[in-house]
Amino acid sequence: MRKAITVLCTAALTLTMAWGLPQTAASAKTVMKIGHSMPADTFRQKSLVVFKEIVEKETEGRVEVQLYPSGQLGTEMETLEAVKLGSVEGFRSGGFEEAAPLLEIYSMPFLFSDMEGIHKVTRGPLGEEIAKSVEPAGMVILATGDSGLFRQITNNVRPITQPSDLKGLKMRTPPMSTIVKTMEALGANVVSIPFIETYMGLKTGVADGEENPLTNIVSMKFYEVQKYLTLVNYQYHAEMFYVNKTWFDGLDEKDQKILKDAAKEMMLVSDKIVAEDDAKCMTFLKDKMEVNSLTSEQHQAFVEAVQPVYEYYIDKGMFTQEMIDRIREAAAN
């Protein structure tokens, strides 16, 4: 009888392993699929590899991290929706109104004056408070970092040193409302061109100029078809690490802490790569374009010109003046 029971148990274990049936809690493993839109040689994938290594080591294999760069899991909006639904566990990208309207606050024009102030917010208690705004959508944000440093302006018509210099220029922008509203407030005529087609649009004159971080200006070779670069530092884009809330809440507290700590370490690595790349691009572009920096008085003129953008979003109920004031205070202290 004992021999027969042993044979049956061995057979059952064999079937469990062969058919992928659930095993005991001690041997259980959870898979964390993470998608993003950038190629494998960029800061997102490089830092996500760090996250994967930390999580798999610290959880002793209880959490297996699978990375899917280059939009393998769909477009950014499709992947974000998949995280909400739980068919994908994680996603790295910028702030989207589709995730939570409050996240758009990071991209308000001239909200920040330097990266140190930004990190005081994104890495501090106020950043955690803003991150909680995605929870009603079924997600949590484990860490917030830099999608790029400040966005700058290039064009082929004239140097940009005051808001009136933008008046009438055909400026290519992505379909992001805070960018469109800002360019309109500065008097530019907004032109919608897909990112991958922007180079040809600038070359053929469909657009006079564009706005992007220095890293994009270099990687897309916009400097080949643009003459003037203005270091205006007008907008910052945050980088969020979204995770499905139901999946995350299902982990034990020990593994939740491991993931949170690994996510913060990942973003520090990511931010360091972004800063280094931006500095290299600045050195490169000095020899390729006419570079204009703003005086404090010129900068203030731009700040005053975009105040209607703040009024628009506050009236719309996206966020409050109180939150704007709290961010500025946190960044300054």
Rank of each mutant, 00 (worst) to 15 (best):
P136Y: 10
E184P: 00
P174N: 10
T178C: 01
S147A: 13
G124D: 14
P163Y: 13
F150S: 06
L186F: 01
L149R: 05
L166W: 10
G168I: 08
A143W: 08
P125F: 12
S147C: 07
I160T: 05
P174L: 11
K181Y: 11
S147L: 08
L149E: 13
L126V: 13
D165C: 06
P163S: 08
V121P: 11
F150T: 00
T178G: 00
R123D: 08
V121T: 10
S147V: 05
A188P: 00
G138E: 06
V140P: 00
R172A: 12
S164D: 14
G145S: 09
R158M: 10
E129Y: 14
L169T: 01
Q152P: 07
T144A: 14
E129R: 14
L186D: 01
V140D: 11
L142T: 12
G124M: 12
P174S: 12
V180K: 05
F150Y: 09
T144D: 07
D165Y: 04
T144M: 15
P125W: 11
K167W: 05
L149Q: 09
G127P: 00
V180L: 12
G145L: 07
R172V: 10
K170A: 04
K167F: 01
P125E: 12
S133I: 14
L126D: 09
P159S: 04
G187M: 01
E135C: 15
N189T: 13
E129G: 04
K167Q: 14
R158S: 13
T122C: 15
K181I: 08
V180P: 04
G168S: 08
E128R: 12
K132S: 15
A137I: 09
R172P: 02
I141C: 06
G168N: 06
N156L: 15
P136L: 14
S133M: 14
A137T: 14
G168W: 13
R123L: 14
L186E: 02
E128L: 13
A131G: 02
V180M: 10
D165Q: 01
L169D: 00
G145F: 07
L149M: 12
L186I: 07
A185P: 00
E129D: 02
T154H: 10
L166P: 02
T144P: 01
R151N: 06
I160H: 03
E128I: 13
N156W: 03
R172F: 05
R123F: 15
V140I: 12
I130C: 04
N156V: 06
E129K: 15
S147T: 09
L169M: 14
N189F: 05
K170S: 03
T178P: 00
S164T: 08
G138V: 05
S133T: 15
M176N: 07
G145M: 13
G187H: 05
G124H: 08
T161C: 03
V140G: 05
P163W: 10
T161N: 11
E128S: 13
E128F: 09
S133G: 10
G138H: 07
N155I: 04
R123G: 11
S147Q: 14
R151P: 02
R123N: 08
R151K: 10
I130M: 09
L166C: 02
S164Y: 02
G168D: 15
P163H: 03
V157K: 11
G168K: 07
G187P: 00
T122W: 10
G168M: 10
T161E: 11
S133V: 15
